[in-house]
Amino acid sequence: MYAQVVRYYQFGDPQNVLKVEQRIIEPLKQDEILVKMDARPINPSDLIPIRGAYRHRICLPAVPGYEGVGTVVEIGPLASSTLIGKRVLPLRGEGTWQDYVISRAVLAIEVPDQINDDAASRLYINPITAWVICTETLKITSDQVLLVNAANSSIGRLFIQLSSLFGFRVIAIIRHTRYAEELLNLGAWYVIDSSRMSIYDATMSVTNGQGADASIDSIGGLDGFELARSTRPGGTFLALGLLSGTQVDWARISKELSVHPQLFLLRHWIQQISLSRWHDTFEKVIELVQNGQLNFTAPTERFALHCVKEAVQFAESNKRTGKILLV
């Protein structure tokens, strides 16, 4: 059987290196399952590797996409026949930007019928990252203040929602005042518009000169340093993303500030956990989504897989107000 797939053979601008091709679906082995994909989001974490940030661990040609949802249409000889027709997240295997994904049954996550494809396709990268950071990495307690930049991003909104569940307070940093009221209604304790005020001054003012107990940086560069500077002595500065494309100055942070700098990589957490913990973590996050305690913004736009270049261009444009899905 032939199927459509997105590949890149060299690193660079997605507009130049992404190719839509046909692949042959090989017979399944052992406990493998074949999943017909229904939806896949375009995340910054999907695009950064295409540009070559992780070239030391990516074998070319490669298929992009870390997450998505689909339906099991075929199983290998050792996989359970009960999986046929089930909606699953086919994770930790092939890239998801293709019509069909082959995954190990034991790693696939079954999705309840109550969660639609729009939400199900986004259950992995951001929700699991936010949950692990709050409950395991930072272990934030109800009396603490968390400082988050890019707070209107998908993961920023999840940190705010988790703060309502666990009782800690989030200072949300944005660059446009129009998002302030919405984030406050979502559960943010305080909102800083960095285009109008100093992050450091505003944080010190609202925390009575103490600074935040922990901070999460999704931008990097000078924005990341300003976040670290606004963290109290002995607090934790956690680097999560690189939306600016520039690394935070780790040497300067170590030299000038008395914070504990850390880098969070979801793949490192995955390498350390058991199979049961993998599934247990998803069960907790899925329950929150089912109960309406964790919500995702509606997708801005949907693109067919063969229009992937147009989809990426739109995802990185100022026109986008929510997640872009490949369907």
Rank of each mutant, 00 (worst) to 15 (best):
R7Y: 09
Q10K: 15
Q10Y: 04
G12D: 10
D13P: 06
V20D: 09
E26V: 05
P27I: 00
Q30H: 15
I33E: 01
L34V: 12
V35P: 12
D38W: 05
N43P: 02
P44R: 03
P49Q: 10
R51A: 09
R51K: 15
G52H: 05
A53M: 15
A53F: 15
A53V: 14
H56A: 09
H56N: 12
R57H: 02
I58C: 06
I58Q: 07
A62P: 09
V63S: 09
V63N: 06
P64R: 13
P64E: 14
G65N: 14
G65C: 12
E67V: 11
V69D: 05
T71R: 07
E74P: 01
P77F: 00
L78K: 13
L83W: 15
G85V: 11
R92S: 00
G93D: 12
E94Q: 15
T96G: 13
Q98G: 02
Q98F: 02
S103R: 00
V106F: 00
L107P: 02
N116P: 13
N126I: 10
N126M: 08
T129D: 04
W131Q: 14
V132G: 05
I133F: 03
C134F: 01
L138H: 01
K139N: 14
S142D: 13
L146E: 10
L146Y: 08
L147G: 04
G156Y: 12
Q161R: 04
S163V: 05
F166S: 04
H176S: 14
T177I: 08
A180T: 11
A180Y: 01
E182V: 03
L184T: 08
N185Y: 01
S194N: 06
M197N: 09
M197V: 12
S198T: 03
I199T: 07
T203C: 10
S205L: 13
T207R: 03
T207S: 01
T207I: 02
Q210L: 11
S218V: 02
G221M: 05
G221W: 03
D223E: 10
A228M: 11
T236W: 03
L238R: 00
A239F: 04
A239L: 12
A239R: 10
L243S: 06
G245D: 08
W250K: 00
W250R: 00
R252C: 00
I253V: 03
K255Q: 09
E256H: 06
L257H: 11
H260T: 13
P261Q: 04
F264V: 09
L265R: 14
L266V: 04
S274E: 11
S276R: 10
H279A: 01
D280L: 01
F282I: 01
E283Y: 02
E283H: 05
E283T: 07
V285C: 09
E287A: 15
V289Q: 02
G292A: 02
G292R: 02
L294S: 07
T297D: 02
R302E: 13
A304C: 04
V308K: 05
F314L: 13
A315T: 09
E316S: 15
R320K: 15
R320D: 07
G322R: 07
K323V: 10
L325P: 09
L325E: 07
